[in-house]
């Protein structure tokens, strides 16, 4: 495989995972930007452990996943059923606290960034295995009783409560899960890039993943899977003169999609339509 394709696919996996990490809490209307802080915390922990303690990638990856889950769980005790705006504020606060700590902590490389995170063989394989496993569990969740409860909360929190849905526990569960994905993705990111820089874990990643979530479609897990490779890859394929307009292109795309398809490119009816078409096609073949 060519090196550019290798990096394109590796970073695509990072974007898919981070967009899913945003997607999950958004199922209960929580814009949980804290996953970016989880990404930074676990990423830096992973980098430090690999460089200084010579931990294997898999050990670091597992630790990153757990750290992300634990940090998010602790915070979710307070914001598990908080209003969307409060969750956003907590997320931003954690991002800035994390960034400030990293920037002032020499062991983490301070403002210079962290260099020399070792190269790992087969990291692309690990990344896509994690995408596969995460995607499987998100799919199972979306089609479970819990998923339907999350949809009810998204539409009307009080109504969902009246049906017996424990909005706080479900919010905590999704935030913890998203934090774990964010943490593991932070480790993946560090090992793919072989370096970490504090400024990455702020607006650039939020802006990119938010666009992917809302353009791709925030009502199903398939939206990010479509939007991540397209939105991140398009500027790489376009000629430099056109790619320079990427921000404008993104903006126009976002406006067009929000006007024409407010739920994003891939919606639940669209998925049902595709499934039905495939199903019918398979039946015809069988006959």
């Amino acid at each position: 495989m060519s090196l550019p394709l290798y990096y394109y696919l590796a970073i695509t996996a990072v974007y898919i995972l981070m967009t899913w990490a945003l997607y999950l809490p958004y199922r209960v209307a929580h814009l949980h930007f804290m996953v970016v802080a989880n990404m930074a915390i676990s990423g830096y922990f992973g980098g430090y452990a690999a460089i200084n303690w010579h931990w294997s990638f898999l050990a670091v990856f597992a630790a990153g996943f757990l750290i992300g889950a634990v940090v998010s769980f602790v915070v979710s005790i307070a914001i598990g059923d908080a209003p969307t705006f409060a969750v956003v504020i907590v997320g931003f606060t954690f991002i800035y606290i994390t960034k400030t700590v990293i920037e002032n902590w020499p062991a983490m490389g301070s403002t210079m960034g962290m260099f020399g995170i070792p190269l790992v063989n087969h990291i692309l394989l690990y990344a896509y295995l994690f995408v596969l496993v995460t995607g499987f569990f998100i799919y199972r969740f979306d089609h479970s009783r819990l998923g339907r409860a999350a949809s009810a909360i998204f539409i009307h929190r009080e109504l969902a409560t009246s049906f017996g849905v424990n909005t706080k526990y479900l919010g905590m569960f999704l935030q913890t899960w998203a934090g774990a994905i964010g943490g593991a993705t932070g480790v993946l990111y560090g090992f793919i890039m072989n370096s970490l820089f504090p400024n990455f874990f702020t607006f650039p990643i939020i802006g990119a993943t938010m666009t992917m979530l809302f353009l791709g479609g925030y009502t199903t897990m398939w939206g990010p899977l479509l939007a991540a490779p397209v939105l991140w890859g398009a500027p790489l394929l376009l000629p430099t003169a056109v790619a320079s307009w990427r921000q404008i292109i993104y903006g126009v795309l976002l406006i067009v999609i929000l006007l024409l398809r407010p739920e994003g490119a891939i919606t639940r009816p669209f998925i049902v339509k595709v499934q039905t078409t495939i199903f019918q096609w398979m039946r015809i073949k069988k006959v």
């Binding site: 495989m1 696919l9 996996a13 190269l119 087969h122 692309l124 394989l125 995408v131 596969l132 398979m282």
Partner: peptide, 23 residues
């Protein structure tokens, strides 16, 4: 069908492109 489609899609991404190769 959906599970199979998802598995295929991701498996293609994983094994066809990655193929266990290092950089």
């Amino acid at each position: 069908v959906t599970v199979i489609a998802m598995a295929l899609l991701l498996a293609i991404g994983t094994f066809t492109f990655a193929n266990g190769k290092k950089e």
